[in-house]
Amino acid sequence: MTNNPISQISDEEIVSMTLRERSTFGFIVERYEAKLRRYIERLGVRDKDDQMDVLQEVFIKAYKNLNSFDIQMSFSAWIYRIAHNEAISWYRKHNVRPEGHLIADSSEVLNLIKSKEEAADVVFDQNINAEEVNKALLRIDEKYRQILTLRYFEHMEYDEISDVLKIPVGSVGTLIHRGKKQLLNELNLDSIRI
């Protein structure tokens, strides 16, 4: 993969190439399939076939709307926004409650909990049961779960999150702060210490 010259080309350049030659869009699919699959799975699309359907729609929509991509924002945020919207409309269409499947490893979860930004004024023991944190994440409000997912599992910057969720940059920090507070309330600290 790293030896492939296409990996040296930026998303924005591939977009320009795709507008001239349709087949180049395959590189976008290759580049984002795994990330977006993981993301929509975290948002609640768990069945493999459903994921395939949703992803296909995501990429078709991305292709149709390529001309709306604003070169001043990151392509990653742009395509995540499409995936986000598509996942939400999927579970609305299927009338199911979005139950995220936070397939995070312990280091990701620890990262979330130990994060000093917008600190929730609670000092955590480092020995934390990731399983419990995952369960707590599933119990918090959807809007907080979405934003914590983007921040700590997709490792996005605030302005990227703002672009994905279409909310003001200032609100991103506030929502993360509140989300973490709610998460802490949901966590039973005694039970998560090993």
């Binding site: 507008l19 349709r22 087949s23 869009f25 395959g26 699919v29 290759e30 399939e33 795994a34 395939m52 992803l55 296909q56 990429f59 078709i60 292709y63 149709k64 709307n65 390529l66 001309n67 709306s68």
Partner: peptide
């Protein structure tokens, strides 16, 4: 991955989808 890429590209051709 190839399956998804192929199905997306095939659909673009078969449905004659063009960027808006």
């Amino acid at each position: 991955q190839n399956q998804l890429k192929d199905s997306v590209l095939n659909r673009l051709v078969s449905d004659n989808i063009c960027p808006t």
